[in-house]
Amino acid sequence: MNEITVPPKPQKSPTKIVRNIGIGIGLLALYVWAFATIEIPWGRIFSERTIANFDRVIPKLFSPDFTFAEKVLNYMMETLFIAFTGSFMAAILAVPFGFFAASNINRNPFLNTMGKWILNADRTFPEILLALIFVVAIGPGAFAGVLAIAIHSVGMLGKLYSEVIESIDMHVVEAMEANGANKVQIFFYGIMPQVIPEFLSYAIYRFEIDVRASSILGIIGAGGIGTLLVISSRNRNWDEVGMILLVIIIFVSIIDYISTAIRKRIV
């Protein structure tokens, strides 16, 4: 039998080896520096008290207070509504932003870059910060949460939409131009059919994220289950906290499952 030998690997150049070693040493130094400066109170972490606290808290978390369930479910529904309304608003608002930031539609390089920057800037505001602003501006409650979710989600959805639009088959658009269609007709016949399924898929995915996000917005008074979470934990009712966590975990898992199933069928 013929022996087949694989050709030897190309030799790495010395400069590359030196560079890689340099990067390795640099990273190591960064870790050492980081851990050395934060002064971890090892003594306190492994003290008797911590262990006692764990003994008190953990078992309670795992024995949720089911009499509390109805109230938790009501707040969870509010959370879902906040997430749904917020992502619904974002899913629609993001469409014009998406087209504005898509380089194959908005051909003006300056306006196009501006569109991308607006979306980038929007994404740098965390929901919780936006919620804080809206709680102050329009008062505490679910609507503040809705606005925070909506505005934050526009940033991400707008960017994803613009990427979808940039990946469409422009030849179809060309074909429509070639048969005398006007711009509006091209939009509805050539572009929309190509992007709608992906838009929907991303909007549903965003809803999934928004459910998780809106469950903590209540901590600063923007409605939903976070309100309950903060009250129960302040009062150290760990069995109530356990119940809340259980409901959040169940709902988020169900929504993840459903959203994945739907998204698989859309695209």
């Binding site: 088959d169 030849h171 179809v172 060309e174 074909a175 070639a178 048969n179 016949y189 050539g190 059919p193 190509q194 399924p197």
Partner: peptide
């Protein structure tokens, strides 16, 4: 009217 190499239909 025009016909193209890659048909250029809206696939969906």
């Amino acid at each position: 009217g025009m016909i193209f190499q890659n048909y250029n239909l809206v696939k969906r």
